[in-house]
C-alpha cells in the first residue's frame, strides 16, 4: 500500500480534474443519480409533459404551416433575402403569430408545469421526509429534480424543433444551409435556457408556498406579468419619466426609447425575443435605436453567425444569470428550510 501511494504523483492539473470528476461521480452515486432517474421517468411517463407538449406542438405546427404558405406566396422575395429556412420560424402569417412568438409565450408554461409542485407536492404527500431520511445529500433532491426536468424539457424541445424543421423542408422544398442549421441549434439552446428559467422560478415557488395550487397561481401570475404586462408597464414608466411632446426632439425620443428598453429588458421574455429574433433573422444589425448617421455607409446584408451572437451576448448572459439566480435562491431556501415544516 505504501509503495502504491509513493508511485501515484499526479500533476496538479490532472489531479484537480480527477478530483472534480470524482466529486461528480460520488454525488451521482449518493442519491443524485437515483433522484434524477426517478424524476425523469415521472416526467416522461406523466401526462403533464404530454399535454403541454401537445399544445406547443399543435400551435407550433400550425404557425409553421401558415408561415410556409406565406413564404410560398412571396417566394421570389424570400429567396432573394436568403435564409428561407429561418423564415419558417420567424414569419407570422395572417392571423397566426410566428412559431417564435408562440414559443416565447407558451414555453414558460412548459417550465412552470414541470416544477410548480416539485417540492410542496412531496411535502403534502408525506414523501419528502421519507426521502430525506435516506443516506443522500439534501441538495441531491433539488439538483436531481431540476436536472430531470431540464432533461425532459430539452428532449421535448429538440424533438419539436426537429419535427418542425422536417415539416418546413417538406413544405417549402428548400434545404437549410449549414449556417441556418447552426442558427437553429443556437435557437433551440436558447429556448432551453429560457424554459429553464421558468422551471427554476416554479421550483422556487414550490419551496416558498406550501400549497401546490398557490405556487401554480404564483407562477402563472409571474408568467402573465412578464409576457404581457412588462412591456406595457415599461412604456408607461418611460412616458412618465420622459413625457414626449407632440413634436419630440431626437434626444427626447432617444431617452424615452432607452428607458423603455432598459425596463423591458428586465423581463426574461423580452430578452428571449430579442435574442431569438436576432438569431433567426441575420439581417438584424442592432438591438436599440439607431440614428441615420450611424447607418450611413453601411452595406445592407446579413451578419455572420458569430456577429449575431456577439449582438445578443448580453441578452443570453442576462437570461442565464436570471436562471442561475432563481435556482440559487431555491437551493438556499430548500437547504435552510426547517424539516419540521416538511
Amino acid at each position: 500500500m505504501g509503495g502504491h501511494e509513493l508511485s501515484v504523483q499526479p500533476d496538479a492539473k490532472l489531479g484537480l480534474h480527477k478530483n472534480w470528476f470524482n466529486k461528480l461521480t460520488s454525488a451521482w452515486a449518493s442519491g443524485l443519480g437515483a433522484v434524477t432517474h426517478k424524476e425523469l421517468a415521472d416526467h416522461l411517463g406523466g401526462k403533464r409533459l404530454l399535454i403541454l407538449l401537445g399544445l406547443v406542438a399543435v400551435t407550433g405546427l400550425s404557425a409553421v404551416y401558415v408561415a410556409a404558405s406565406t413564404i410560398r406566396e412571396s417566394a421570389m422575395e424570400a429567396v432573394e433575402t436568403g435564409f428561407v429556412f429561418l423564415l419558417l420560424f420567424s414569419t407570422s402569417g395572417g392571423s397566426l403569430p410566428s412559431f417564435l412568438s408562440f414559443l416565447g409565450f407558451l414555453g414558460p408554461l412548459l417550465g412552470l408545469a414541470l416544477g410548480f409542485d416539485s417540492v410542496n407536492g412531496e411535502q403534502t404527500r408525506g414523501t419528502l421526509s421519507r426521502i430525506l431520511s435516506q443516506p443522500i445529500h439534501r441538495d441531491s433532491v433539488i439538483n436531481g429534480k431540476f436536472l430531470a426536468a431540464l432533461c425532459a424539457v430539452s428532449l421535448a424541445l429538440v424533438a419539436l424543433t426537429l419535427l418542425i424543421s422536417g415539416l418546413g423542408i417538406e413544405l417549402i422544398g428548400i434545404p437549410p444551409s449549414s449556417e441556418e442549421i447552426l442558427r437553429v441549434v443556437c435557437f433551440a439552446l436558447l429556448t432551453i435556457v429560457y424554459v429553464a428559467f421558468w422551471l427554476s422560478v416554479s421550483i422556487m415557488f414550490s419551496i416558498v408556498f406550501r400549497q401546490a395550487a398557490t405556487s401554480a397561481l404564483a407562477g402563472m401570475a409571474t408568467w402573465l406579468f412578464f409576457t404581457v404586462f412588462a412591456t406595457l408597464l415599461a412604456g408607461l414608466v418611460a412616458d412618465a419619466v420622459v413625457p414626449l411632446p407632440s413634436e419630440p426632439t431626437a434626444l427626447e425620443l432617444m431617452r424615452h426609447q432607452r428607458i423603455e428598453m432598459a425596463l423591458s429588458r428586465l423581463s426574461p421574455t423580452t430578452l428571449y425575443y430579442e435574442a431569438t429574433s436576432t438569431l433567426l433573422s441575420p439581417h438584424t444589425r442592432a438591438l436599440g435605436p439607431i440614428s441615420v448617421e450611424q447607418l450611413e455607409g453601411a452595406i445592407p446584408g446579413p451578419l455572420p453567425l458569430s456577429q449575431s451572437l456577439l449582438l445578443i451576448w448580453p441578452d443570453v448572459a442576462g437570461l442565464v444569470a436570471a436562471t442561475l439566480l432563481c435556482f440559487a435562491a431555491s437551493y438556499v431556501l430548500f437547504m435552510r428550510q426547517e424539516i419540521r415544516a416538511i
Binding site: R125, T127, R130
Partner: peptide, 11 residues
C-alpha cells in the same frame, strides 16, 4: 425511519 403520516408516490 418511519415518519408519522408516511406517504408514497401514488403513481
Amino acid at each position: 425511519y418511519l415518519p408519522d403520516r408516511v406517504g408514497f408516490y401514488e403513481d
